[in-house]
Amino acid sequence: MDARGLRCPLPVIRLAESAKGLPAGTELTVLSTDPAVKLDVPAWCRMRGHEHVTTREHTDDWTGWAVTVRLG
């Protein structure tokens, strides 16, 4: 799920769209250049019953974050 260049709340919305219809247990990773994803993806997981797995910072070829969730 590439949400790079999008500003809040669009990365979370794109993530929610991708998650729609996927079975529980599926892992999804969203790539984002918006610092709010670090906070808003875990909050979305809490509100929607998903699990926040990891948040990794990218500093090499692009600057931003890769946030992985497991759908509940």
């Binding site: 809040c8 709340p9 979370v12 709010a36 906070l39 808003d40 875990p42 909050a43 979305w44």
Partner: peptide
């Protein structure tokens, strides 16, 4: 986002 909302771990948008 607000560093206060960030420190609390709540939705910031």
């Amino acid at each position: 986002p607000s560093h206060v909302l960030a420190a609390m771990g709540v939705l910031t948008h």
